[in-house]
Simulated scan of single mutants.
Amino acid sequence: MSADQEQQSIRCLVAKVGLDGHDRGAHVIARAFRDAGFEVIYSGLHNAPDEIVQAAVQEDVNVLGISILSGAHDTLVPKIIDGLKEYDAFEDTLILVGGVVPDDDKAELKELGVAEVFGPGTPMEETIQFVRENAPER
């Protein structure tokens, strides 16, 4: 398999959860992932955690990128993780969080199973490389 085929086989769901209406970052990362050769699905705004879980399971994604700026990451992200576990999709999904997350909360999210938390100003290539190196194969 060529490097291009390998990159195209990475399916990513970029998800906005909760009442957070700030979606510029989600659009930027979705476009960067697409430009990097990933297959990208964007959830749109104002999704409940169970809607994100359903989309991740139905679309059989390798990567779930949760964009959240509302400060509700400590409530909403665990609900998504619990939902993925209910569908036996947790182990096969690389979970990323993007947004403004305090350092103490980053550690808690990682303990729950979030692979990485990317804050504002993270270089796109750093995020793309992380996905390439860590996305589970399907």
Rank of each mutant, 00 (worst) to 15 (best):
R34E: 09
P49D: 12
D23C: 04
D88H: 11
A36E: 01
Y42L: 01
V28G: 03
T75Q: 14
G121H: 10
E86I: 07
Q5P: 00
F38M: 05
P49S: 13
V40E: 03
E91N: 13
D104Y: 07
A26W: 04
D88L: 12
V77C: 05
G99F: 07
V77S: 04
A3C: 00
A115W: 04
V101T: 05
T75Y: 07
E108N: 13
V131R: 02
Y42M: 03
A26H: 05
A115H: 09
V17N: 01
H22L: 03
Q129A: 13
D20P: 06
K79H: 08
H73W: 02
F33P: 03
D88G: 12
E137P: 02
L76K: 01
S43F: 06
L19F: 01
N47H: 02
E6C: 01
H22Y: 11
E126D: 15
F90T: 09
F118I: 08
D60Q: 15
L112Q: 12
F33V: 09
Q5F: 05
I52N: 03
G83L: 02
F90M: 09
E116V: 11
L94I: 12
R31G: 04
R24I: 10
L96C: 09
P120K: 08
I68R: 01
A48Q: 14
S43A: 13
F38H: 01
R34W: 08
E137R: 15
P78H: 02
D88I: 11
Q54S: 10
H46W: 15
A30R: 03
D105S: 07
S43C: 08
A135S: 10
Y87F: 15
T122L: 05
E126N: 12
C12Y: 02
A48C: 06
Q8M: 10
A55I: 13
A72V: 02
D50F: 00
E91T: 15
A135D: 09
A3Q: 06
L96P: 03
L84M: 06
R132H: 03
A107D: 14
V40K: 06
M124W: 08
A15M: 13
D105G: 00
R34F: 12
F130C: 13
S70C: 12
Q129E: 13
F118N: 08
I128R: 11
V17Y: 01
D23F: 00
I95S: 05
L112D: 04
Y87R: 15
H22D: 13
A30Q: 06
Q5I: 11
I80K: 01
D74R: 08
V17F: 00
A107K: 15
L112C: 04
D20H: 04
K110I: 09
M1P: 00
V14M: 11
D82R: 15
G21H: 07
E91S: 14
E126K: 08
D60M: 12
S2W: 02
N62K: 05
N62F: 00
V114W: 03
H46D: 13
G21N: 09
V117C: 08
T127W: 07
G121R: 11
G37L: 10
V61M: 07
Q54E: 15
Q54L: 06
A48K: 14
T93F: 05
G71F: 09
G83D: 06
I128C: 11
L109R: 02
Q8Y: 05
G44N: 06
G121V: 12
G113M: 12
P49F: 08
H46S: 10
E39A: 07
D82S: 14
S43E: 01
K110T: 07
I66T: 03
Q129I: 09
K16Y: 05
R138C: 08
